[in-house]
Design a protein around this nucleic acid. Structure first.
Lengths: 341, 341
DNA sequence: AAAAAATACTAAATCGGTTTAGTTTTTTTA
DNA sequence: TAAAAAAACTAAACCGATTTAGTATTTTTT
């Protein structure tokens, strides 16, 4: 039944100890003074018997898996799949591997995934959390388990974090709209919107309006329930574009909402930028392909992922001391979806 | 230094054997006649000491990891990230987890990843292979290692496979173009194009042309080197749209090429469908957002992933016997990128 | 020629679980 | 009342590696 070869099998075959076999296979044979002749014998045997190390056994012994977990809300979201790819590549350069899980913005699911990844002895986690409260992360900190928050932060804890200036970026984008002559901007935000990035963007939106001398009225901020984005966006756009109520400028708070908006624009025959000026958060490929292309806030994902990986691997290798925070300033990429009026 | 609690620690604390602790934690206590009182004691202790099982140790003993590996060329490609998501969800329902790796269409990288996933003792693999020759898979078959090929097949081996009728779908799409009045269709294919799906699509393209009474000339098939898609697509489009050489219809063999085409259309001011009729393989979100939306061949990814998972888990649970093949017929979704002429 | 050093190797503990094959004590049956 | 059965638990082997602390043999040094 046992159809794989272990070092014990090889040791038996060769008439040597498994210590010796292990040493040879781990390039520690010279240090231990194993003769070259014996080393070659072992190596040859390994090839002949098609030996494959059992990394579980190895991991159990040395207490490492060389695996990092990535927790995001949805790996099919291009923002996160790109993130996964960058992280995978950076990790690969240091011989670490990646396991990815989607949480669907579900708190309980996320908790379970984090627990599971720890039980699998992953060496560390990179998390874009959907949690409302940072209890899980407080626990991880208490237990010195290495992790980095990415994209979404908790201000009440002191953890490693890599993210962007959501407030400033949004503020700037809204100011841009205002500067182009729009004094009636509506923002579509996902709800529940307790994750830090969304909250910050909402604040940036609100303050930019106020600072522009525009009275902020609650109707300017439309909440789109996370699990029925597509339907709600269309409904809301229908409402907003009724003749007596025509909005002029729309800000989509993330790519999910933005894609739903773009689809709805098509279906409802809304013309960008003539009917509505449109700005989106998170730059994704699709924004370049629409007519006109979409003005969007671009997160420097590659740099973010680079730092997330570096911080995490550093902490894994050296006894963790202080926590690090890296905050990038995203840029507003001007395309054709806003025209001066 | 040891900062986690093991069943041995709990056994010591409670003054019982670790056998007992293990049995209780695995719900095998009743069967073994452990008294309820003792069971409660153990459970309470586990909670108090914040016990977390070590799934590596468990996996080593029982020879399972409950983990499946997914090998694709690029997880940032929306086709594959959607695939990953579906697979993740189907696996999750049966308490399996997913690890994903990108190969960049690199043969050697793919071989290494497959080896690594096996060494990590993953219970099985789902692979969209970039290999030219099926040597790795022959080996897996020989060793009865469970795996399912998805999207790309090898006709020279008898392995589990889930895919689509690439030939028919392409044939049908090209016939559609011809039917709309285009007798000069160019196909942009990736090269190297030895993967089965691409080969089949190319054949479908060629035969559809021939069967339509159109002389197939080599210039109708343009090879785009995989690692410089964007640049080459633009160059080729420039050539093809020179006044004396104006093509009328373009077929993009996958979403990578298609997205590059769409970007180039923008940059070169090529108008779809007036200047060129355009059909793409793989339906991705972006195709719905362009003006006009893109006519595309849609793979039933969800169903494909469902079967891939079922076949794989079946084989893992039961001694493998015969191999299964599931082939879907994708549908051509007519949008606005082809107009009758 | 005895002591020290170098060479070439190995026994056994360990990681943290699972599982087989018991053992001991109490209760039931014949 | 002896034998069988049931109840409650456990010792020890095992999964496949790594690693510590050796041992045995040969070679070098004094």
């Amino acid at each position: 039944m046992k159809n794989h070869v272990s070092i014990t099998d090889m040791a038996k075959e060769l008439g040597v100890s498994k210590t010796l076999v292990s040493l040879v296979l781990n390039n520690k044979a010279d240090k231990q003074g194993i003769s070259k002749k014996t080393q070659n014998k072992v190596l040859k045997c390994a090839k002949k018997m098609n030996y494959k190390p059992n990394l579980m056994a190895r991991g159990l012994r040395i207490g490492k898996t060389d695996t990092i977990g990535l927790v995001v809300s949805d790996i099919a979201n291009p923002f996160y799949s790109k993130m996964a790819r960058y992280i995978e590549d950076f990790l690969g350069k240091q011989n670490f591997h990646l396991a990815i899980c989607s949480t669907d913005e579900n708190t309980e699911k996320e908790s379970n995934i984090i627990r599971l990844m720890r039980e699998k002895q992953f060496d560390g986690l990179i998390i874009s959390s959907s949690q409302k409260k940072p209890d899980d992360f407080k626990q991880l900190l208490r237990e010195d388990y290495p992790f980095v928050l990415i994209d979404r932060n908790f201000k009440s804890i002191k953890a490693n974090f890599v993210g962007i200036e959501n407030y400033d970026a949004t503020y700037h984008a809204i100011k841009h709209l205002v500067g182009q002559g729009y004094n009636n901007v509506t923002a579509f935000a996902v709800s529940p919107c307790y994750v830090s990035s969304i909250k910050e963007r909402i604040n940036g939106f609100r303050d930019a309006m106020k600072d522009s001398g525009i009275d902020f009225v609650p109707e300017m901020l439309v909440e789109i329930p996370f699990n029925e984005v597509k339907y709600t966006v269309k409904e809301e756009l229908l409402k907003l574009t009724r003749p007596n109520n025509k909005i002029k400028a729309l800000f989509a708070i993330n790519n999910n909402i933005a894609v739903a908006c773009l689809e709805a624009f098509q279906e409802l025959n809304i013309n960008i930028p003539d009917d509505i000026a449109f700005v989106a958060f998170d730059d994704i490929d699709a924004y370049k392909l629409t007519t006109p292309p979409i003005t969007a806030i671009d997160q420097p994902l590659e740099g973010m992922c680079y730092h997330a990986v570096q911080i995490l691997l550093n902490e894994i290798n050296k006894p963790a001391k202080s926590k690090k925070s890296v905050i990038f300033s995203p840029s507003l990429i001007l395309r054709g979806s806003v025209k001066k009026q």
